[in-house]
């Protein structure tokens, strides 16, 4: 045990949790071990993975986004109405909403505001916009969007490929590139980054704009899957995305995040629901089981952390 590298252990926890979960699902319901079964289970996990990535960008700079669920809902409503009927207006609205996210980042940085409160307020704003666009559930996804999301890849379901690409792209962008190091450092040690001549404002705006972009992607994929929208469609994403990043090995402070872990965490959270329904656990206990699973994984993590401390 003593020779185990704590860093490796830390990175392995999310992967192991997902693997364990998948094995359990396959054993209980062998039919899921097929193209169709995996596709069905993972389809709704993909937008959660994107929303989790958006949350990861915000957590990297020591902030927290309580509005991502409302934002994804609003994007879904825009996609199911304007983007379908008047594409130009829809595209403009989506770009404007990404700009709004960037502006929020600037506001939070310039006035040194607590992100929790600002995004809490913005969650009302996004939700209000969603309600204005779609007062009752409905709308229709643009055909091209549905076609992309429901595209049948040969051999491997699109959701798996897309998740892998998502994790790898952000991993190389944020963890391996020079720019990514600076972005993470602005969460790890802002003073040092500022002294080294970087503009903290620009870095924070970049992260918020990235979060907005991934939020938009999440909403588009969600509508492509469900083909219609309603104003409350993604509200639970706020909590799921935070939990996903943390499950994936991220920390709340210090720019310590793991993009690949976050994707695994998001998939794990999304699949827990499937496992529970295969186990014939009544839906009432599903949310509780998600909570228990979070606690167990975090307990494991704190063990790993103590292990790390002792190793140092």
């Amino acid at each position: 045990m003593a020779r185990l590298d704590p860093k490796l252990l830390r990175a392995a926890v999310p992967a192991l949790s997902l693997a364990l979960l998948l094995v359990a699902i396959f054993i209980i319901q062998p039919r899921t071990m097929s193209y169709f079964g995996l596709n069905l289970m993972l389809n709704l996990a993909l937008p959660i993975a994107f929303a989790t990535m958006a949350q990861l960008f915000i957590l990297t700079v020591n902030d927290l986004d309580l509005s991502i669920g409302g934002f994804v809902s609003m994007v879904a409503c825009i996609a199911a109405t304007w983007l379908n009927e008047t594409p130009l207006l829809g595209i403009a609205a989506l770009i404007a909403s990404i700009a709004a996210y960037a502006a929020l980042g600037a506001l939070i940085h310039l006035r040194n505001l607590p992100s929790i409160v600002v995004t809490l307020g913005m969650s009302f704003v996004w939700l209000g916009c969603a309600v204005l666009l779609l007062p009752s559930p409905g709308g229709a996804a643009p055909d091209w969007l549905t076609a992309i999301v429901k595209f049948k890849m040969p051999f491997v379901p699109l959701a798996i490929v897309a998740s892998a690409v998502l994790g790898l792209v952000v991993h190389f962008g944020l963890m391996r590139s020079a720019g990514g190091v600076v972005l993470r450092a602005s969460g790890g040690n802002p003073q040092a980054v500022a002294k080294a001549g970087w503009s903290l404002l620009k870095l924070k705006v970049t992260m918020y704009a990235l979060a907005g972009t991934f939020g938009v992607l999440s909403g588009l994929i969600l509508v492509g899957t469900t083909t219609s929208a309603d104003a409350n469609i993604a509200l639970r994403y706020t909590l799921l995305s935070i939990a996903g990043v943390i499950l994936g090995g991220g920390e709340f402070t210090g720019g310590r995040v793991s993009p690949i872990g976050a994707v695994l965490g998001a998939l794990t959270l999304a699949l827990v629901g499937s496992l529970l329904s295969f186990l014939r656990i009544s839906p009432e206990w599903q949310i509780g089981a998600q909570g228990l699973m979070l606690i167990v994984v975090l307990a494991l993590r704190s063990l790993v952390n103590r292990f790390e401390e002792r190793a140092q």
Partner: peptide, 8 residues
């Protein structure tokens, strides 16, 4: 909708 936007 507008009420929520204003509250936020």
């Amino acid at each position: 909708g507008l009420r929520q936007i204003l509250t936020g």
